[in-house]
Design a protein around this nucleic acid. Structure first.
Lengths: 336, 336
DNA sequence: ATGAAAGCGCTAACAG
DNA sequence: CTGTTAGCGCTTTCAT
């Protein structure tokens, strides 16, 4: 049926192992025979059978990408995930690897799927696209010494987890400093999620930035349910807030709407800056000034780092920081 | 290392083949021994090695999901894809299959990746998440008799392609009829894409619906670049348009913005209805009245249909239609 | 109803 | 530098 390593070997008049070695560019084969083998491969249209290779090498050449147990439609609609997945996939195909997805309706199901994928040897390890506290999936990976890398920063296992991430503290600081530079002195941090690690970090960056410059730092405000409306309005008025930092673009859109509902103008009365630079920031005017987290790069490097982990399981569990980029648009006014 | 079929066989005192047969619930094994084998599997924690299975059976138990060659950030941000992918993945895991992704920066790269995945036997076939004219990928699949099913409706190969889709003509008709029922008689179809099949179908549904009732049918309007602004404004004014059908939610958001820019109110002056019922329809007020295409169901059925194709390659290339659902929100006013 | 045995296509010692 | 060979774990005839 399809061309095998043996066919190629016969064609060239060498042993199958020689062909196999040529495939991996093994140093102990002479350039000359390698060349002859490669020619024959082309001629016969040889393509390695991954199943056979996997069985023999006990590797699957596949990486599992773990999505958060969705639940909320908000999460599933976040363009960030697909962007990162595409990036991982691109990079993976450059390394002759494929990516398989691990999803689940809830944590238990997700864990089950992850375990099965690994035990069936469908994947060599995983890249996690989320971080949460008390994550059984993460526990499993660490416990079983499954190779993995996280996009984000975990709550624990700081020395057992390799991760690729933005420096969210710096992100928070960058946003804050940008507003300060534009002449804002009463800056408020607004969010719809308090538990995510990236929120805590960004908020902390905000606090330190203001604190260091002896400017007024405000406790963050939550805007999630209708009951939060009044509190936020009061806060803005009483603290004479002139600028808000929103936890991400999608939320910023809602925040802007809230501001306008209260007869304030963006950016004339209140400026807004946010994170992610996703499609949401250029959906409607005023376009949102936002900090790009570089999702492509996150994906690419996550895969490369994962490959490192795979090569030597004992390799250092480093933490790779991806730079960001502030995109100026229409939601911040300058007082200088 | 890990438990194999042999270990189980030894434990029970049967031949490996008996264990293998139990795994597939082969009829020629007595229920009694099957039971004993299953017990032993549980006891030893046996998990089949897919690589071995794949090699022996020449099947990979994996399906490739082909994403459109992205290019535009708009496409990559469309939440529809991730929703469908998740749904496919869910269904796949219920059938002991995994999904691998096929992506590419452009058509050529995508084709290359698809071919490689298939020739390396990483996947048994594909599910396509897009449709385009003159698609080399589709040509390849049909030409090489690779099993596949399309989510959407292809331009050609009507008898060689199994597909799962909404009936976009009915969708267009549903939107139109809804507006008519609410007392609108001058309805305009607005889009930012003219080439996609789903646009053509929805627009055709719109035309037929109005035509059959002897109401005024208008040529569709395009709103893509700044140069389209004036034309659209004139059209609305001169044709006394009271309602617009937008090609999807994301676009509807932009359309609404355009309308408001011209000092019209939604829905007081102009009503809007759109398709997809994605996150974009409930992002900002007025929330958009939209037709849900049921992406979960699309994904689930696509996988099931793909499995059919896999079982018997010669099976009928049917076309499965997924029902839709109109979600009433805040962008359509009733004159009745 | 069950067992024996021959592969599936490739890798990786071990020889030479 | 290259060949020989013994598997990797499972499926699947062919016997019994």
């Amino acid at each position: 049926m399809s061309v095998t390593i043996k066919d190629v070997a016969r064609e060239v008049g060498v042993a199958p192992s020689t062909v196999s070695r040529t495939l991996k560019d093994h140093p102990s084969i002479s350039e000359e025979t390698k060349e002859r083998v490669r020619k024959a491969m082309d001629k016969l249209g040889y393509v390695p059978n991954v199943a056979a290779r996997n069985l023999a090498s006990n590797l699957s050449n596949a990486v599992g990408v773990i999505l958060p147990a969705l639940g909320t439609k908000d999460k599933e609609s976040n363009p960030f995930y697909l962007e990162v997945i595409s990036a991982i996939n691109e990079e993976a195909s450059h390394h002759q690897m494929t990516v398989s997805l691990a999803t689940g309706e809830n944590q238990e199901e997700l864990l089950k799927n992850v375990q099965l994928m690994y035990r069936q040897k469908r994947v060599d390890g995983f890249i996690l696209l989320y971080v949460r506290e008390d994550d059984q999936v993460l526990d499993y990976l660490v416990d079983q010494r499954v190779p993995f890398t996280i996009i984000g920063q975990p709550y624990k296992y700081h020395n057992e987890a390799s991760c690729v991430d933005n420096d969210n503290q710096i992100l928070g600081r960058t946003a804050t400093q940008y507003l300060i530079d534009k002449g804002h002195s009463n800056v408020l941090f607004v969010t719809n999620t308090e538990n995510e690690n990236f929120f805590k970090e960004r908020y902390f960056g905000y606090r330190r930035c203001l604190g260091e410059q002896n400017l007024k730092v405000l406790d963050y405000s939550v805007l999630k349910e209708a009951s939060d409306f009044l509190a936020l309005k009061d806060k803005i008025t009483s603290s004479q807030v002139s600028a808000c930092i929103a936890i991400d673009d999608m939320f910023a859109l809602r925040l802007i709407q809230f501001i306008q509902l209260n007869d304030w103008l963006v950016p004339d009365d209140i400026s807004v800056i946010s994170f992610n630079n996703s499609i949401f920031s250029t959906l409607i005017h005023p376009y949102i000034t936002s900090i790009d987290v570089n999702s492509k790069e996150l994906g690419h490097l996550a895969l490369q780092e994962f490959l490192e982990q795979l090569k030597k399981t004992d390799s250092v569990k480093k933490r790779i920081i991806i730079p960001h980029r502030l995109i100026e648009r229409e939601t911040v006014i300058s007082y200088k």
